[in-house]
Design a protein around this nucleic acid. Structure first.
Lengths: 211, 211
DNA sequence: TTAATTCTTGATCAAATGGTCAATAGCGTT
DNA sequence: AACGCTATTGACCATTTGATCAAGAATTAA
């Protein structure tokens, strides 16, 4: 159908390309999550990536391209813990699992959380479509699962959407407002574990069906 | 002790000064909360304030001065709803009142919330002292109140600090992630009211002392 | 009214920053 | 070894932006 070796100009990436793009995206996540879009400079990212600015712009032609690439990559990771609700499982332990997964994400990848939060805070100029598309679908599906549990009397009646939002809010808060929490609780406390316990208890006791 | 009319050069503000500083701070809140510190320009603020850039800089000599002034003013408002826990009141209704006050703040003053969130997100470079000072004191006091309730068996045992943080997280989320919530729930829904109901129910049921 | 003070802004500057380009170096394939 | 393609960067450019200044307009106090 095609020539055996048609000079793969636009084909797969070079070894060096793959390596450098990874390096750049990692550096970009560091910088963008710490300073926001406008607060970050291409020079900063290039420094962190250990290469010159023109070289960085050889891989991503515009600052905006870097930002969108790192956002896209980050969002993919971000969605993972949101998919861990099993409709056929036991509701309270499923929700506990959900909270644990989301909390682990905040603990292990706070920069992704902050990048995302910053984007939201400023009106989601780059991911509006994602929010009303894949994100909305996922939330709708999760809400349907919760509605099912409520209908079967397995948990107390509650607005499923706001239940989801509150869980997101609580878990992400520990990544996004890390500074504030540390200022109050001190540097060395492992507040993530305590927070997880508290949140799970609160939600479980708040959802337990009552006669 | 002093002359009757010592040319009050550094004394109180002029009428025009007072007016213009108010106008500038209002414009600055708009702009900074929407675009962040680095994302905002002095020109933008001056435009919104309806005056020339040099004139604005006549009142606040540096961009940083404007930012700090609006942050300080905003933080004052911000603290108000955090003070509405009465140790002698009925715990569950006191906490409901607290949640309502915080939720009203998010609904009526989302820009203040976003300004604050943005500052947190980027490591609180301008208000670190505030966090470990007045803010920490206030949280400690509130935690003491909650501990008292727990000790007297009026509510279930729970980490008071994380209870406070989760309430903050949930209520502020509706201001800071407004875009995301609207993308999922649609533009016209009055989600603040529904969220308030859900949060209060969740927390109250989660805190009710059980035998 | 008048004189001092406060207020306002057009013009301008220097630094920061996103982005380009031409020239060079490195790598992989034959 | 030699050729072609990929990778790299110093130098440079145009624009944006925080900040200054001098000169004039408006306000205030006498």
């Amino acid at each position: 159908m095609a020539q055996p070796k048609p000079k793969p100009k636009l084909a797969g990436k070079t070894r060096i390309q793959a390596i450098n793009e990874d390096i750049i995206l990692a550096a970009a996540l560091e910088v963008f999550s710490a300073f926001g879009y406008r607060g970050s400079t291409v020079d900063q990212i290039a420094d962190r990536a250990g290469m010159s600015k023109p070289n960085l712009l050889y891989y991503f032609r515009r600052k905006d391209d870097i930002y969108r690439a790192v956002l896209e990559k980050t969002l993919a990771d971000w969605l993972v813990p949101l998919k861990s609700l099993d409709p056929t499982g036991e509701p309270l332990s499923e929700i506990a699992r959900y909270i644990r997964a989301k909390m682990a994400m905040s603990r292990d990848n706070p920069k992704a959380s902050r990048l995302f939060a910053n984007e939201m805070l400023h009106g989601a100029p780059a991911i509006g479509d994602f929010l009303s598309g894949p994100m909305k679908l996922l939330v709708d599906e999760t809400a349907r699962t919760i509605k099912g549990w409520i209908a079967r009397g397995q948990i107390a009646a509650i607005d499923p959407y706001h239940l989801i939002f509150t869980i997101w809010a609580m878990t992400q808060h520990y990544a996004d407002f890390d500074i504030q929490i540390r200022a109050v609780l001190g540097r060395n406390s492992n507040h993530f574990a305590d927070a997880e316990t508290t949140i799970i208890r609160l939600i479980q006791d708040g959802l337990r069906p009552r006669p």
